[in-house]
Design a protein around this nucleic acid. Sequence first.
DNA 1: ATGATCAATAGTCATACCGACTATAAAGAG
DNA 2: CTCTTTATAGTCGGTATGACTATTGATCAT
Lengths: 275, 275
Amino acid sequence: MTAPLNGTARGRAPEGYDKYAFEPFAVTVDLAVLTLRAGALHVLLVERGHEPYAGRWALPGGFVLPDESAETAARRELAEETGLSDVSGLHLEQLRTYSEPDRDPRMRVVSVAFAALLPHAPEPHGGGDAAQAQWLRYNALGPLAFDHDRILADAHDRVGAKLEYSCIATAFCPPEFTLGELRQVYETVWGTALDPPNFRRKVLATPGFVEPVPGAARLTGGRGKPAALYRAGTAATLHPPLLRPTTSVSPASPPSTPSPSSSSPVPTSPEGRPE
Amino acid sequence: MTAPLNGTARGRAPEGYDKYAFEPFAVTVDLAVLTLRAGALHVLLVERGHEPYAGRWALPGGFVLPDESAETAARRELAEETGLSDVSGLHLEQLRTYSEPDRDPRMRVVSVAFAALLPHAPEPHGGGDAAQAQWLRYNALGPLAFDHDRILADAHDRVGAKLEYSCIATAFCPPEFTLGELRQVYETVWGTALDPPNFRRKVLATPGFVEPVPGAARLTGGRGKPAALYRAGTAATLHPPLLRPTTSVSPASPPSTPSPSSSSPVPTSPEGRPE
DNA sequence: ATGATCAATAGTCATACCGACTATAAAGAG
DNA sequence: CTCTTTATAGTCGGTATGACTATTGATCAT
C-alpha cells in the first residue's frame, strides 16, 4: 500500500482505495506558551514570514518527528522557541487536537495543541525556525494565523478552569513567591479581582498547595508590608476547589478576533513548516 | 515536496530531508463508548481477529478519512459500530491524542481518542469493520489491545471528573428519567453510594440541570414509590460543582491491567486497520 | 522627618451549602 | 396485611465562603 503525498493533498480521498486505506497526514504540535509579565497575561508568538498568513502572528510549533511522541515534540519546540536550557520542569499540558480538513490551505495537517506555563518569561531569542518570537499581551492581539485564535482561546479556557481545581497556578510563579504573586496569577487569568484575605485563607487552608519557606524569609522591595515567601507544595488538586466569582461572565477578553477556524499552509522552505 | 509513504514507515526519519521535512503519519480515532447496563458501567469493545493482539478486545475506531475532521470520523465510527441511526445527539468528547512512536508495532499511528456516552445501549450488530462488537463490563476486563487500557482509563477519569462540574450525567439517561436513575449514573461511574435526599436537593437546586416533565408524569413499575420524571435541562455546567465524597480513594477499579502503553499493527486487509 | 499610601495579614460575622439523619409516602413482594 | 423498597420532605450542625474591619510594616512624596 503506497499513497502519493503532495503538498496540496486536501479534499478528495483516493477513491480507488479499499475501506482500510488511509491518507497520510502531517502531524504537528502547536504551543500556547503563557506567562505573566507586568501583571498581564502574555503569549509567545512568532511572526510568519511566508504565505499563507505572511506577516501574521502564529503560535510556535513544528512537526512531530518520526521517533517522537507529540509530548516530546512539544517539549523540544518549547526549548527551541524560548531558548530555555531547562525546560523539563515546566508545566506542559495537552489541550486537544485540531484536525479540520481545511485548517491549512497547503495540505492536510493535524495539530496536537499544548499549553505551557512559564514562571518569569525570558526574552525569546528566536533560536528555532521562527523568524522572530516575541511575548505579546493576550489582550490586544490581532487575528492570528490559521486556527490559532481558537487554540489560544481554548488554552486560556483550560488554564482558567484548571486554576479552580488544581494547583497549576504555582507553575506561573518562580520557585519562591508571595501569596500576592500567586493571587495575581488568578486575577490575571480570570480577569477578576480577588479579596486578599479570603484568598490567603483559602490557599493556606488547602494542605499541600503551598508551604512556607523555612527561614522566615520575607520579600521586601515593593510597596507595602513585606510578604512571607512560599514554595509550591506537593498537592496537585484543590479540594474543595477555588471557584471564580459567580459574577464571572467575561473572562479576560480573548484575542480581539474570536473567529473560529482558519487554515494553514505546508512547508516548502525553512520557516515554512505548515502553520 | 513529495514524501514516499508506505505502510511500515516507522522508526527512521528520511534523514536527507531538511529540518522542515515531515514524516507522514496515519491518523485514527479510538472510541471509548460508555453506557450503563444493569447498574454497571459497560464499554463497547471489538474482538481483534488478526495480529497483533489477535483475540484481544480493543476499542472501536478507524482511520480519519481525507476529508474528515477527527470529530467527524469519530461520529461516523460511532454510528457504524453501534448500529444506531441517529448518532447526532449523543455526547462525544475528545479526550486526548496518543502518539507514542511504538504504540502500534506495524507503523506510526497517531490516534485521537474520544469518549462517547450512550443512554440505553442497543445491542451492537458488528456492522462496521469489527469482527464482533460487544458490551463488556468496565470492571472485569482483561488487558486490552495496544494502549487501549490507558485510553479507557483516561476516558473513565475524564467522565468521572466532568460529572462533578458539568451536566453530562443526563447523556447516560433516556429522554425522560427519574432522579434515581440520574443518581445511579453518578454512583456507577464514581463507584460510591450517594445519599438520595442530598442528591435530590443538590440537583433540583441547580437551575437548568433537570426540569420536570409537565404532565406530572411518574414512573412506576419498579419497587418503591413511583418517581417523578425529569428531562435534561439547558444548563451545561454545575455551579457550584457536585463533588464526589472526599473519601474517594478508589474510583471504580480500572481495567485489571493498568499497563501503560502498548503498540498496534498496520492495515493490510479488511478488519486490519491499525489498532 | 513625617505623614500619606500601599500591601500583607489578622480577625469577625452572617450565610450558603453540604453531610448525616429522621420521618413519611407509596408502591410491590410474600 | 405486613415487610421491603424507593421516593421525597424536612431538620440540624458544621464547614466554607463572601463581605468587611483593623492592624502592621514597609515605601513614597514633600
